[in-house]
Design a protein around this nucleic acid. Structure first.
Lengths: 123, 123, 123, 123
DNA sequence: GTGGTCTAGACCACG
DNA sequence: GTGGTCTAGACCACG
């Protein structure tokens, strides 16, 4: 199941994507597993189908899921392991933004690394 | 100087804030240093004064800069070092989103920690 | 409804904020209640949407209201009760300014306390 | 002497007025006492003469001070004790704004009255 | 439809 | 000149 935070500034469709990816990482969802149809998940989550459709389209583009015509949508066989240089750059940039805030708050490198380690393990 | 990336999804006013904070962290801007007037920076950057004003107001709220009555705007004497719990939570959440992507790309914890360390040092 | 005083020196957006806060205190608005959209209230009040947007953004920052993704804006669940020390100091300073005027007008301490009590109760 | 807070949002000329009034209330300045010339005070405070002139004009209007041609400026003979209904209304309105914030912060009536009493006594 | 961002101006109080 | 407020519009992402 997916829990949405409507109060968050993070778009709903991104929350859906993040949640699915997380469940894959954590092993709750495995390659070949079926996930609900766009309409089904929209109903479950109480959002409009187009929001779910947007999330699915984006995940399909990223080869996280696969849609097999008339059969449904499934977790993709093998998650691609390489990130595109462009995405890599985006991640670096976003991380940097957060690290600027932490460094501004005088959080030491050691504290940051510890924190990152914890988050990484908890994923 | 500030370099803007108009292609970025990050709003101009946020880019201005991040750039100023970065320059403070890197020592290019020190407490008491004057920064350009709203109109001056707007002209420099080729954006409307309201965009710069929005950035300045946000930074003043965060006590990054101080406006002194008709004398100009200055880097605040002593940046407050405590982050609000709420902001802290937001940072954690944003970091997590990026780490999910890295873990998905099979980037090991060691690699992530190394990368974070580098970014932290480079700030 | 909100009544604006265009002759007042108090900015429109601040009047909107004060009015909403007052209605919450008086129980006319309760946590979870919807308030008009930015555009809706702008039309009601006869001001430009950006003025209302500014008021809403400030109230969101103060956790007075919450914006829920494309569903609207609502009175926040539980107003935070702690004031920041800095805000507290500002309130003290503003109160002092007014009390100086009252003391100058030879209004006795008893009269002032009575007056304050009345205003407090009437809120 | 007058201490100005350039960081404050309160205009310099208002700070000057408040300071003079305070010194009168506290007995440091008595009716008939001379106060510096506009230029003299401007030099003392490090502000432009027009700022001091604005403060003096306003105080003269309020009969706080008197300017005697070619002799200088003096604390007025007897401070007027009645406030104009309009000013009274303004004070009430400003007090109300601050009290709304205090009530929002769940500061009890007793606490507020105590706080007001302290400030009043300290003036 | 909704809020967020941005433009291009105007006016104002302050100094 | 300076920042703060406001108007009247535009465009965009999100849902």
């Amino acid at each position: 199941m997916i829990e949405l935070d409507y109060r968050s500034k993070k778009p709903i469709y991104e929350q859906i994507i993040e949640s699915i990816k997380l469940q894959i990482l954590q092993g709750y969802l495995k390659p070949g597993d079926a996930i609900p149809s766009v309409r089904g998940m929209a109903k479950d989550l109480g959002v409009t189908p187009s929001t779910v459709a947007k999330a699915y389209q984006e995940m399909e583009r990223q080869q996280v899921i696969e849609t097999i015509r008339a059969k449904g949508t499934f977790i993709a066989a093998q998650p691609v392991t390489e990130t595109l240089p462009l995405d890599r750059e985006k991640i670096r940039c976003n991380l940097r933004s957060e690290l600027i805030e932490l460094k501004r708050a005088k959080v030491s490198k050691e504290m940051v690394l510890q924190m990152i380690g914890e988050i990484y393990d908890a994923i």
